[in-house]
Computed example of a mutant assay.
Amino acid sequence: MSFSHLHGFKVAGVSTCVPPNRVDNLEAGKDFGAVEVRKVVSMAGVRHRHVVTPDVTAVDLCTDAARRLLNTLGWAPESVTGLIMVTQSPDYFLPSSSCVVHARLGLGDQCAAFDVGLGCSGYPYGLYLAATMLRGGGHQRILVLHGETPSLFIDPQDQATSLLFGDAGSATALEHTGDAQDEAWFSLFTDGSGADSLIIKGGAFRDPRPADPRDLRLRMDGASVFNFTIKRVPALINDTLAYAGLQVADIDSYIFHQSNRFIMKHLIKKCELPEDRVPFILEDMGNCGGPSVPLTLTRSLAQRGDQPMRLMLLGYGVGLSWGATIMTLHPDTPLLHHTYQAPGAPSPRSPL
């Protein structure tokens, strides 16, 4: 069954990280023509994006986010017994990115570390895996890292993707509590028949050296992705609410994967969601893939009130894959956001 109800754990903290290089789409897209670029920016909702330099990867962003989160929580590295790295932007085919991060964070050898190769839906999937590990016993603290650098695999000549995607890394700490009131609901789905809708055809073992160099870049069938989204996401929201025995008004904030403003506005209207409960960060962050979900958390809810908040977290896209999580965010849960700083680089407040 695609629905699960798990309890006895909580999200202890979330940390997100973006590269310092901020791109203005109106300037970056000038070769496409000023009028056309303004149309794309208006529809997609992306004015600025943060993109990495070629020497920075998703592993770097996630490691930085995780290190800051561990320091804030006061968690000793050896107390973490699980590390899940969700990414489709790995440093290497092998070893796994989780092993690279494991070493950088100085985690102990009693820590289970593995990668999950999911994109836009990866955050609810990662939370589900961590929750099942905590629920199964033997684990007290788990890190879920989710990072992507789509700017490195888009075609600069494709205005549909080059003006849309930004880069980000995240770290989410989950902790066993044993309290039945710390609960979450999960719904996870897949339709692999739509795999070609978002794909990089070349570069891996199926076609390591493609004849067409464009096959080393992301190809997106925008119409298919739009149709998939408006078909699957409303049902995802309604069915997850029904499974949890909740109504639309019972959710304090709907944290969407920041896919595209036009698509998100369509979903809000179709699902009759209160607009003030659906935060947008697209304008200054772009579509960062799956990490856009934790990024929306830290960017929109850091200055929240002193009461628990019930959230619905929504991921959907490449795969095709989609999923949702309903969970409670406690008022004392730290939500951190910062700009990536390369190891050894001077602090922004330090003299150059």
Rank of each mutant, 00 (worst) to 15 (best):
M1L: 12
S2M: 11
H7D: 15
F9D: 05
F9V: 03
K10C: 10
V14M: 01
S15P: 03
P19H: 00
P20H: 14
G29T: 09
D31L: 12
V35M: 12
V37Q: 10
V41E: 11
A44G: 02
G45K: 04
R47L: 11
H48T: 14
R49Y: 13
R49N: 13
R49A: 11
V51W: 03
D60L: 07
L61T: 10
L61M: 10
C62F: 05
C62V: 04
A66R: 05
N71G: 14
N71P: 00
W75T: 11
P77F: 01
S79C: 04
G82V: 04
G82S: 10
L83P: 02
I84R: 05
T87S: 15
Q88E: 15
D91Y: 02
Y92E: 08
P95A: 10
P95D: 11
H102I: 05
H102W: 05
L105C: 09
G106C: 09
G108I: 07
D109L: 07
D109R: 11
A112D: 12
A112T: 14
V116P: 06
G119S: 08
S121M: 08
G122F: 03
Y123V: 07
G126N: 09
L129D: 02
L134F: 04
G136W: 08
G137H: 11
G138M: 12
I142N: 00
G147P: 03
E148W: 00
L152K: 15
Q157M: 06
Q159N: 08
T161A: 04
G166L: 03
A168P: 01
S170Y: 07
A171V: 02
A173L: 02
L174C: 12
T177C: 04
G178H: 05
Q181C: 10
Q181L: 11
Q181Y: 01
D182L: 05
A184S: 15
A195H: 13
I199T: 09
A211T: 09
L218K: 04
M220C: 11
M220W: 04
S224V: 07
V225K: 01
P234A: 03
A235C: 09
N238M: 06
Y243H: 15
A244T: 07
S253M: 12
Y254L: 05
I255W: 03
H257K: 03
N260H: 11
N260D: 11
K265S: 13
L267P: 00
K270Y: 06
L273D: 08
P274T: 09
R277E: 07
P279H: 08
L282Y: 02
D284T: 14
N287K: 03
C288W: 01
P291N: 02
S292N: 02
P294V: 00
L295T: 08
T298G: 10
M309K: 14
R310L: 04
L311S: 05
G317V: 00
V318Q: 02
G319V: 02
L329E: 10
H330Q: 15
H330T: 10
H330D: 12
D332Y: 01
H338V: 01
T339W: 06
R349I: 10
S350W: 14
